[in-house]
Design a protein around this nucleic acid. Structure first.
Length: 433
DNA sequence: TCTGGGGTCCTAGGACCC
DNA sequence: TCTGGGGTCCTAGGACCC
């Protein structure tokens, strides 16, 4: 038995924990650069705001409907996520944190009333962390995800599903007839792994509901849509095809990419931006004790603007796997210089670290033909990370990132940022009796 | 004027190997 | 006129997820 627990409207929910006056109000959290809505409170959804709606298109609701818009505060969400996950873990034996707001929990072998247990964990998360969440259970991950969707929908839209399925829904405890009724009411696009494209193709073939999909012939699904959708169909039928272990494997790549606050066409600020992204990516790499074998750097103009497009990228192999910031920055800048062309309004650039391995897996010896031994700077990097962790991000940095603290033309817009209540001493909320 | 960031997996096609 | 079979690796692109 697998459970999927997930925080409701997580980012908006976290902001509400620290500003209770937001409860019940329309709230959106904006992406980096205050570009578009990436989280919405229930009241914001009721205003018709969609996931990914650009801010400039919904801005008028600020005045006319009391919409509150906040810049994404990932330091805060990440910390609150850790707290929520810790409490959710009590539901079962093992937990796989799947995203910032949801985790799969293996409940195989847990005895007693699973639904009652889930309700208990749910109210504990609400009381201890302040975040309302929903829990779905089923024989497979896909069924658990679907159960979670039903738990949420039953809570949000009374009458859509039987009321006892609200907040906690265990599909495995239903009779075949009850299950069929639920599958028949649920659009196929709600299934984990069925996105807009496949939904459209399915609809063209008369497949509209989960029940329609489950009844499809497996070889047909395989032939027409491939192995991914076949697995989804099998999972919906209760046959497990996606193991928790598969999903827990270490990262295969690390990226740091950003849209700029305003477009950039000169090489110098681009070098600053790319150097800074490579440094951040290097920090993430060291955090997971990894080494990168290659660096990809890219830059492109806005895909939303008319006119000539420019989009180039390049992979720069590293002579040997490394987690040394200066080597990563050097490679990224080298790639950037190779793809750079003057005269373009660059809107976004990024750095990706590829061919990752664990540092302790580097077994290959090396015949050193270089006249000078290159110093191992692992300890230097550890010290740099420690200093930055203690005194603030970017406190020690490579010179090509430019001076930190000063906002540059490429730095992102965050005009509605809330305090980092739980991760910065100066921002700690003060309670007065 | 103004449209995020970070991932995964699968497939097809080309280059290359013996 | 007529040119194999079996395999790997790499890349680009598409689709999906949150």
């Amino acid at each position: 038995m697998i459970a999927l627990c997930d925080g409701n409207n997580f980012f908006a929910g976290v902001e509400t924990v620290f500003r209770p006056s937001l409860a019940g109000r329309p709230v959106v959290v904006l992406s980096n650069n205050d570009g578009c809505a990436i989280a919405r409170s229930e009241a914001a959804k009721a205003l018709g705001i969609k996931m990914g709606d650009p801010w400039f298109k919904i801005k008028h609701l600020e005045e006319h409907a009391g919409l509150v818009a906040l810049s994404a505060n990932f330091a805060l969400y990440g910390d609150m996520s850790d707290r929520m996950m810790t409490v959710m873990a009590g539901l079962g034996f093992s937990q796989l944190v799947y995203s910032i707001d949801e985790s799969f929990i293996d409940m195989t072998g847990i005895r007693g009333d699973l639904v009652a247990r889930a309700h208990k964990v749910r109210s504990r998360v609400l009381q201890w962390v302040g975040i309302p969440c929903c829990i779905g259970m089923g024989q497979t991950k896909t069924l658990a995800k679907l159960a979670n969707h039903i738990a949420k929908t039953a809570e949000r839209k009374p009458g859509s599903f039987p009321p006892h399925l609200a907040q906690v829904c265990n599909l495995a405890s239903l009779t075949p007839a009850e299950l069929r009724a639920i599958f028949t009411r649920t659009p196929v696009g709600e299934v984990w792994g069925v996105g807009p494209k496949i939904s459209e193709q399915l609809a063209a073939g008369g497949i509209n509901t989960v029940q329609d999909l489950v009844q499809l012939d497996v070889p047909t699904v395989r032939a027409r849509w491939g192995v991914t959708l076949e697995r989804t169909v099998r999972e919906l039928r209760g046959q497990s095809c996606i193991e928790l272990d598969d999903m827990a494997s270490p990262r295969q790549e690390i990226a740091c990419t950003r849209s700029f606050g305003q477009t950039v066409s000169e090489l110098r600020p681009l070098i600053e931006a790319v150097s800074s992204y490579a440094s951040t990516a290097g920090e993430k790499l060291r955090k997971q004790q990894g080494l990168a074998g290659a660096v990809r750097v890219f830059a492109h103009t806005s895909p939303f603007r008319p006119g000539p497009r420019y989009a180039r990228s390049m992979v720069v192999p590293l002579r040997r796997p490394t987690a040394d910031t200066s080597e990563l920055v050097t490679a990224a800048v080298k790639g950037l210089q190779a793809i750079y062309e003057p005269g373009h309004q660059i809107a976004k650039a990024g750095v990706m670290l590829l061919d990752l391995i664990q540092a302790d897996k580097l077994l290959q010896g090396e015949l050193n033909l270089e006249p000078e031994e290159r110093p191992d700077r692992t300890r230097l990097m550890t010290a740099v990370d420690a200093v930055n962790n203690r005194y603030g991000k970017g406190c020690v940095h490579v010179a090509t990132t430019g001076s930190t603290g000063r906002p540059s033309e490429w730095s992102m817009k965050q005009e509605r940022l809330t305090p980092q209540y739980t991760t910065r001493w100066a921002d700690m909320p003060i309670v007065r009796a």
